[in-house]
């Protein structure tokens, strides 16, 4: 399978990465090189094989249902590019 330029733009949109018209042709070439490389996976017989969900056998652990952390508003906001009154600031979302 290979991708056309329209698909490259769609993927960029899905990934929330702005691309310029100049970016698209070389991205298309690079993505198609990778897709050509993974094509060989099609020759493996995977009938009846379970997909891996955990690389080491481990049971999900339960923990006590208790508050163990919190009251760290200043720490959480410390690295934000824009904040106001203990909130993250973003451009207007609702018209």
């Amino acid at each position: 399978m290979s991708v056309d330029q329209q698909t490259v733009r769609r993927i960029a949109k899905l990934a929330r990465i702005a691309v310029t018209d100049d970016d698209v042709p070389h991205l298309q070439g690079e993505l198609n090189a990778i897709l050509a490389f993974v094509e060989q996976l099609g020759e493996v017989d995977v009938d009846g094989v379970e997909p891996m969900t955990s690389v080491t056998p481990m049971a999900m652990r339960m923990r006590e249902d208790a508050v163990t952390d919190g009251q760290k508003t200043a720490d959480i906001l410390a690295n934000a590019p824009a904040t106001e009154d203990n909130f993250f600031l973003v451009p207007k979302v609702v018209e």
Partner: peptide, 10 residues
């Protein structure tokens, strides 16, 4: 498919 192949590798 890749996750199934991962099972086979393991």
């Amino acid at each position: 498919r890749a996750q199934k192949i991962r099972t086979l590798i393991k």
